[in-house]
Write a protein that binds this DNA or RNA. Structure first.
Lengths: 210, 210
DNA sequence: CAAACGAGTGAACATGCGTACACTTAAATT
DNA sequence: AATTTAAGTGTACGCATGTTCACTCGTTTG
């Protein structure tokens, strides 16, 4: 039933519906938080009947885990793109601040999801996010460890800097997400803050490391 | 009905019930997040009938606002006590790290509430928490501005350092709250992290301020 | 071309919810 | 001592939820 524009293979159509469900859940989460979003609400928004939901996810919890996965995959793509940017080698800090703000702005829904649900979400979702962030700290540590100034630091120190960077990234992402639209002044302020924090970390470490 | 141990004036008894309701709501929030806590759950846990709830709060939202107030009043008491501690003048950073960890450990429920609901809670609660945090940044800036090393900084710089400190405080409080009990090693690690971050901020600012 | 599959349907259910309303029964007021 | 006040009770209601089950009917498969 319900001809979806053009005919499509069963798989294609299923995948399409799946994405619609995910998008619906993400949108509803923005306004009320994932935990308050009901299976019926998602189904209604996605334009399917509640029971059809089960053809795609066995529960809202599983749906939440997929949203986590999806959000972090967006994040990783951002980091990969940023590393390709030639600017990054010239001016690591400024470039990072720009990429961060731009990427978060572009995928507010996903980063907002992570921000909110990292502490406020259901247990399974919180656990998944914490795990992803831990992985991410490790990955960033590897990247940082290859940097010229840093290559002879102890691995604990690199790990710690990485943790500080990720923590700051999360904080700044929160700020961008909560930023009202069309306020380039605020945006610039956040970027400036991010730059300063990164400089503090770098300078502080170089200066004080004993 | 239900003789509450010893007789009590009407006011006293009402206040007692009110506190029981607040405690019930706080406890339930810890496990499921405030937004998922229903009026009926709170009433059940508090040992009253749902309709009696309305004698104390006009809605769960209003209850949430009181919890925010209560939590920040705890926080302010902590800061005031810490300022009285003579250690603070000798070794500001170490003392602050200790006080932070100890206080949060002692009132995990309240700080956990703020952590979770700051981004994950209902709109009204989130707004209230953001407002309290803004106030708090301002208050801390006043305290910092009176410090010997800092007294000739521009007020914008002081405000920014204050924001960084509060942000770090929030992050560290999150970590303490999520810390499993009886792990003095983790606790020490968090303290050490907090100390380093504060040193970074101070050193970095002193070094780089242009 | 016939059979099997499977995405989406629609009715039905038990449960928990917020709130309205009429009530009891002590404490407070007169 | 008589009256008023107000915390707390108990019932009842309409509504949204998650999940069940038997179903349709186009796509895929043999």
């Amino acid at each position: 039933m319900s001809e979806p524009a053009q005919s499509a293979s069963r798989q294609e159509q299923k995948e399409r519906t799946r994405q619609i469900i995910l998008a619906a859940a993400l949108e509803l989460s923005q306004k009320q938080g994932f935990a308050q979003v009901s299976l019926r609400q998602v189904s209604r928004t996605a334009g399917i009947v509640p029971t059809a939901f089960y053809r795609h996810f066995e529960s809202m919890d599983k749906l939440g885990l997929v949203l986590v996965e999806q959000s972090f995959s967006t994040l990783r793509r951002m980091i990969r793109d940023a590393q390709r940017d030639p600017q990054v080698y010239d001016n690591m800090i400024d470039a990072t601040a720009n990429v961060l703000v731009e990427t978060v702005k572009q995928s507010k829904a996903q980063f907002g999801f992570v921000s909110r649900e990292r502490l406020g979400g259901p247990d399974v979702v919180r656990t998944a996010i914490r795990h992803e962030l831990d992985l991410f700290v490790g990955e960033l540590a590897v990247v940082l460890g290859r940097l010229p100034n840093i290559e002879n630091w102890s691995s604990e120190d690199v790990q710690m800097v990485s943790r500080l960077f990720v923590r700051n990234m999360v904080s700044n992402a929160e700020e961008v997400v909560e930023m009202p639209d069309g306020r380039p002044d605020l945006e610039e302020q956040i970027k400036e803050g991010a730059r300063r924090q990164m400089r503090l970390i770098v300078i502080g470490f170089r200066e004080w490391r004993s």
